[in-house]
C-alpha cells in the first residue's frame, strides 16, 4: 500500500520523512563531478541496491522521462525540484511501495528519502539507516571525524539528516499564529517551510516542519526534538480548531459543507480553488464534521490534481481541458461519500 493512501486524515499530521545526504570520498561533489564519473557512480550505487532481497528496488532513469512525467514525480514527493533542475546524468531508485526514494546526483551524490504516513518518523529513520548501510557496502562515504558526513553545502554536514513532518495547519494559518510558530521553532534549530521544501510556497495550508541544523546533535536527538515540537504545534492547531468550532459551529459547518458541495458537483475547477477547497474538506475530516463521509485520503486527491499528475493520469490532455479533468477526477474520488 502506498503511504499517501492512508495518510491519517484524523490528525493534522499527514506524513513524516527522513532524508540523509551522502557523498562518496572517491568522487568530487556535484559542482565538480564529470558526466563520466556521474554515470559510473550511478552504476555503482545501483549495483549495491538492485537485487536486494528485503526491499524490492526499481531503477528510474530520469533521462528517459518527459518533463511532465518528472513533474509528476516531484508532485508525488519521489524526487525534489532540485533533482529536476540538476544536470544529466541523474537517477532515482525507489522501493515498490513508494516509501523509499534514493536520488542520485542531486546537490549531493546520494539523497536517501524515507517517507511514511502519519506519525512514523522512527520507522522512517530506521529504514533510511538500513538503506544507508546498503549503499556504503563497497563505496566509502566522505566523512570527517569532527564534521561528520561531508556535504556539498555546509548547512547539511554532520548527520546529513533532515527529518520532517508534513502538517496541515489551516487554523493556525487563519488565526495568524504561524509567525510565532516560526520564531518558536527557530529557537530550537527547527524550521517550517512550504510543501515542497526549501523556497516553496505553502499550498493548501500544508507545511513541513524540519530540523534546520544538522551538526551537533545525534539523529535520535534531532528526531526527539522534532517530535516534541510538532506535537505541541499540532495540539495548538487542534485547540484553536476546537475553540473556533465551539464558538462558531454553524458558520464552520456551513463553510465545510459548501466546500464539499462545490467539490462534489463542480464541472471545472482551477488549481488554486481546488487546493483551498480540499484543504477545507480535510479540515472537515480532522474536525469530525465529515469524519464518516469521506472514504478516501484527502491528501491523495490533493497530490493527484496537480498539473503533472493530472496530465499523466488523463493521458496528457491539453491545457484547455485541464480544469474540466480536475473537476471530473475530484468528483470521482468523492462519489462514494454518502451525504
Amino acid at each position: 500500500m502506498k503511504w499517501y493512501t492512508s495518510e491519517g486524515d484524523f490528525s493534522p499530521i499527514i506524513s513524516c520523512r527522513v532524508r540523509l545526504a551522502r557523498n562518496f570520498e572517491k568522487y568530487n561533489f556535484y559542482s565538480k563531478l564529470t558526466q563520466k564519473e556521474a554515470t559510473e557512480m550511478i552504476e555503482e550505487i545501483s549495483k549495491n541496491l538492485l537485487g536486494e532481497k528485503d526491499i524490492n528496488f526499481r531503477f528510474i532513469n530520469l533521462s528517459n522521462k518527459t518533463d511532465i512525467e518528472s513533474l509528476g514525480l516531484v508532485e508525488h514527493h519521489k524526487i525534489s525540484l532540485d533533482l529536476l533542475k540538476s544536470r544529466e546524468p541523474k537517477a532515482v531508485i525507489s522501493s515498490e511501495d513508494d516509501s523509499i526514494h534514493i536520488m542520485i546526483n542531486e546537490e549531493d551524490h546520494v539523497r536517501i528519502q524515507c517517507i511514511a504516513a502519519g506519525k512514523n518518523i522512527q520507522k522512517s529513520y530506521t529504514t533510511a539507516d538500513y538503506v544507508d548501510d546498503l549503499i556504503e557496502k563497497n563505496l566509502k562515504y566522505a566523512f570527517d571525524e569532527k564534521l561528520g558526513y561531508l556535504t556539498s553545502c555546509p548547512s547539511n554536514i554532520g548527520t546529513g539528516m533532515r527529518a520532517s513532518y508534513m502538517v496541515h495547519l489551516p487554523m493556525l494559518e487563519k488565526a495568524g499564529k504561524l509567525h510565532s510558530v516560526i520564531t518558536y521553532l527557530s529557537r530550537s534549530g527547527m524550521t517550517i517551510r512550504g510543501i515542497y521544501g526549501e523556497s516553496s510556497e505553502p499550498i493548501g495550508s500544508i507545511y513541513q516542519i524540519s530540523n534546520q541544523c544538522s551538526l551537533g546533535r545525534s539523529e535520535p536527538e534531532i528526531i526527539n526534538i522534532l517530535e516534541n515540537l510538532t506535537n505541541q504545534i499540532v495540539e495548538t492547531e487542534l485547540e484553536t480548531l476546537e475553540k473556533y468550532v465551539q464558538k462558531n459551529r454553524i458558520f464552520f459547518e456551513d463553510h465545510i459543507y459548501r466546500a464539499y458541495g462545490v467539490l462534489k458537483n463542480c464541472r471545472q475547477i482551477e488549481i488554486g480553488e481546488a487546493r483551498n477547497l480540499l484543504s477545507i474538506l480535510r479540515l472537515g475530516v480532522v474536525s469530525g464534521t465529515l469524519k464518516d463521509n469521506i472514504k478516501t485520503s484527502v491528501y491523495s486527491i490533493m497530490m493527484n490534481i496537480e498539473y503533472g499528475n493530472l496530465k499523466i493520469n488523463t493521458g496528457n490532455i491539453s491545457d484547455k481541458e485541464i480544469n474540466e479533468a480536475r473537476a471530473t477526477f475530484i468528483r470521482k474520488c468523492l462519489e462514494n461519500s454518502n451525504l
Binding site: D144, K146, I157, T159, M161, C213, E219, E221
Partner: peptide, 8 residues
C-alpha cells in the same frame, strides 16, 4: 549549526 562537532 548547533555546534562544531559531529554527534551521531
Amino acid at each position: 549549526q548547533w555546534s562544531e562537532k559531529h554527534k551521531g
